[in-house]
């Protein structure tokens, strides 16, 4: 009864643990959804207002989708693709974050990466760091 209510005891994580990776995949999935939906709405309803910002939103969404799929698939190929996507993401959030603060006029509307992701609780800044930690830790193991 206790096990049904509170959950059965967990199985030990397999070597090359998948547990934390699952959590990361879910986080990436949520961001792929959030960024994709935002970009879709922005591009469909008011593309002319800020084409650069909205195309960046779409690009960010695409990077999140690639990272999500690559992390979920795993394996050597998946890890390599994920690493590339996460590095692009890290560069994106740092470059766009800096530019959006240095020249706000160029970014009339928010993107996921504006102000280092402040509109999303800075999760866009933390996510690639977690991703890199996980990928490098597993490579070392």
């Amino acid at each position: 009864m206790r096990d049904r209510g509170l959950g059965r005891p967990a199985e030990a994580a397999a070597p090359g643990s998948t547990g934390p990776a699952r959590v990361l995949v879910l986080l990436y999935g949520i961001f792929a959804l959030a960024a994709g939906a935002r970009a879709g709405v922005q591009l469909a309803t008011r593309f002319q207002e800020a084409p650069l910002a909205y195309l960046l939103s779409a690009f960010a969404a695409a990077v999140y989708v690639v990272a999500t799929v690559a992390l979920a698939r795993g394996g050597r190929g998946g890890r390599r693709t994920a690493l590339a996507a996460i590095l692009v993401e890290l560069a994106g959030v740092l470059v766009i974050g800096t530019l959006s603060l240095a020249d706000p006029a160029a970014f009339p509307d928010e993107t996921v990466w504006s102000g280092y992701g402040r509109g999303y609780g800075y999760v866009p800044l933390v996510l690639p760091v977690l991703g890199l930690l996980l990928l490098t830790r597993r490579r070392g193991a």
């Binding site: 967990a10 030990a12 397999a14 547990g19 699952r22 879910l26 986080l27 949520i30």
Partner: peptide, 17 residues
Amino acid sequence: WAQAERTRWAGTVLAVA
């Protein structure tokens, strides 16, 4: 997702959601 996860990270998946 959490129900499919057999390790102790199942709860964290649900917590993130």
